[in-house]
Structure formats: structure tokens, C-alpha cells
Design a protein around this nucleic acid. Structure first.
Length: 316
DNA sequence: CGTTGAACCTGTTTGC
DNA sequence: TGCAAACAGGTTCAAC
């Protein structure tokens, strides 16, 4: 669910009410949600929160004594502060059974991990319907060494445009696949990849090595402009993304291609097309996002099929 | 390196 | 109406 702007929104919403608070207890209601954690969540008990920040799509919480947490929301994760009595009530087994009617409206359901805060009146709560999300606890160096964090690429809002263009053009493969690759660039997901490519008028299947330096620079500027605008709007709430206080984001109203299959392109009026790329829905305008690149892709696929046939013959 | 498909899950929407 | 398939903001792994 959340990409860079949504995670940034969560961090900004959470930081003011979390920094300075002390964690007094840790509760794991669903063990898979802490799979791969360097240390048991109990290791953060008694420690005060010093800093909350974002790295790519990870929420990082730094505590005293060099300890901390990393949280990834994946598709349906939610992180926020809730009143403790309600959490205790809803943490009972009967409330953990998914309830189709209230799953999204009822923020108390699907609680996987939660941390009591000093004063006993409220708690930091990790809720996650699909259970893809994760909470890691441990020392800051141990968290930094988690492969998914250690291997992250540059932050799109910090990387110089010239450097982005250089890196992009040194790669082979489809533009959209590269934008989604967290080792190449960290924080972009399915929505903003499509939106940035649309803004830069580049085809999602275009080969990165074939893009001009000028077009690559334009793509980076589109990425930055869209991410900044989305952060300002509090992220996109397509179905279940919510701020820590429960409020929705508003950027979904500004999306220009994502999810608009069959509807007219806001630039040229052609019908927006949907294809599936790497198991992800991909939307683009077949007219103004480079017909050239579509042709090139067709040629490449033909060549591949041809090679495959030849390979088979050789094999026999 | 790069691509593909399956897997990890629960819930909602779509289509026959 | 009912039920099955498709789809959903993400990542990881194996295989080619």
C-alpha cells in the first residue's frame, strides 16, 4: 500500500507524539509479523524514543542505548498510537477473527504487534490485514545490516539529477522495472512509477539504456515533483492507507494514469491502456508515452521468441 | 544482469 | 443470488 509519500506521511504524523515517550511493554500477537527480527521486541522495553525517520519505505524509530525498530508496512500495514484500554479489549482472540464488515473501518482489528507507552494510557500499534508487513527490533547497527535495508539504493529526493541520469542509462531493462527496483532507487512503488513515467512521457517498457540523457533528467524531475506533491497531499488513499490519526490522504484525486484504464488521457484524449508487467498492473497512455518504445519492445519480444526457437533446435 | 512466476496473506470487486 | 476468479500500495526466492 504505502510508497515513499505515504511512509513519509506516517513518520511526520507519528514523530511529534512519539519522540520523548518511553516504551514500557511489548506484545506480539502474530509471530510471523516479527520474522527476521535481530532481537526479540522485549529488547526495547524501558527505552525512550529519540528519533523517528524514514528510509525508503521503512519507518525507523531510534531509541536510547543505540537500540531501535524498523517497520515496513508492505501492502496493508498501519502504524499509529491508540488508547491502551481499547487495544487490550480488541486484542482478545474473538476480535482477531477477520470481520468483513468492519475490517477497514475498525482500526482495532488486525493488531499484530503493539508497544505500551509510559503513563499506560496509550500505545504504539502495528496493525496489518494481509500480514506482509514486518516489525524488526534490535540495535541500530543490527537493523542497518538487514539485507533489505543495507542494499537500498539512493533516496530519489536526495540524488542529484545528473547522477540519476547516469545510473539509469547504464542499466539495461525496462524503465518501470528499474523504478520499482529498491536497490536502484529507494521508495518508488507501483502508483508513483506509473505517474512519473506518464509525466515524463516515457513508455514503461522502454529500455533504460536507450533513454537520452535529457529524457532521463526529465524523468527524475517528474519523480521529484510528484513525490513532493504527494507528500504535501498526505499520500494516496486508494483503499486502506490511513494516516496515524486515521485521516486519509488526498493525492489519489490527482493521479493522472494509475487505475484509469479505458478513460481518456488527460493530455491527448486517447484511451489509457492497462498491461501487466512483472505481475503488477501498469497504466500508460499508448499515444503520448512514446509509440517508438512500444515498437522496440515488440521487436525485442520477436527476437526473443526467435532465439527461443533456435535454442530449442540447438538443444535437440 | 534481467525476467518470470510463485509464494507470502486477507479482503473486496468483478464477471459469468 | 452465488460462487469463482481477478485484483490490491510490496518483497523475496528459485529457475532460466
Amino acid at each position: 500500500m504505502p510508497e515513499l509519500p505515504e511512509v513519509e506521511t506516517v513518520v511526520r504524523g507519528l514523530a511529534p507524539s512519539l519522540v520523548g515517550r518511553r516504551i514500557t511493554a511489548a506484545h506480539v500477537l502474530h509471530r510471523p509479523s516479527i520474522a527476521g527480527t535481530p532481537a526479540e521486541p522485549a529488547c526495547v522495553i524501558g527505552l525512550r524514543v529519540e528519533r523517528v525517520f524514514r528510509r525508503a519505505k521503512f519507518i525507523r524509530i531510534e531509541l536510547e542505548s543505540g537500540m531501535g525498530m524498523a517497520i515496513h508496512l508492505r501492502m496493508t500495514g498501519w502504524l499509529g498510537i491508540l488508547a491502551a484500554p481499547r487495544i487490550r479489549a480488541f486484542s482478545k482472540p474473538q476480535f482477531q477473527t477477520p470481520n468483513p464488515q468492519s475490517a477497514i473501518r475498525n482500526p482495532q482489528s488486525h493488531i499484530r504487534v503493539w508497544f505500551e507507552l509510559d503513563g499506560g494510557q496509550d500505545a504504539l500499534v502495528f496493525r496489518d490485514i494481509r500480514t506482509f508487513g514486518r516489525v524488526w527490533c534490535g540495535s541500530t547497527p543490527a537493523l542497518d545490516k538487514l539485507p533489505a535495508i543495507a542494499q537500498l539504493g539512493a533516496e530519489p529526493l536526495e540524488l542529484p539529477t545528473v547522477e540519476f541520469a547516469r545510473r539509469l542509462r547504464s542499466r539495461r531493462g525496462r524503465l518501470k522495472a528499474l523504478l520499482l527496483n529498491q536497490k536502484f532507487l529507494a521508495g518508488i512503488g507501483n502508483i508513483y512509477a506509473d505517474e512519473a513515467l506518464f509525466a515524463a512521457r516515457l513508455h514503461p517498457l522502454a529500455d533504460a539504456s536507450q533513454v537520452s540523457a535529457r529524457a532521463a533528467a526529465a524523468l527524475h524531475r517528474s519523480i521529484k515533483r510528484i513525490l513532493i506533491a504527494a507528500i504535501k497531499a498526505g499520500g494516496s488513499s486508494i483503499s486502506d492507507f490511513r494516516h496515524p490519526d486515521g485521516a486519509p490522504g488526498w493525492f489519489q484525486r490527482k493521479l493522472r494514469v494509475y487505475g484509469r484504464e479505458g478513460r481518456p488521457c488527460v493530455r491527448c484524449g486517447a484511451a489509457i491502456k492497462r498491461i501487466v508487467m512483472g505481475q503488477r498492473g501498469t497504466w500508460f497512455c499508448p499515444r503520448c508515452q512514446g509509440r517508438r518504445w512500444a515498437k522496440r519492445t515488440v521487436h525485442r519480444q520477436d527476437a526473443k521468441r526467435h532465439q527461443g526457437r533456435q535454442g530449442k533446435k540447438k538443444g535437440l
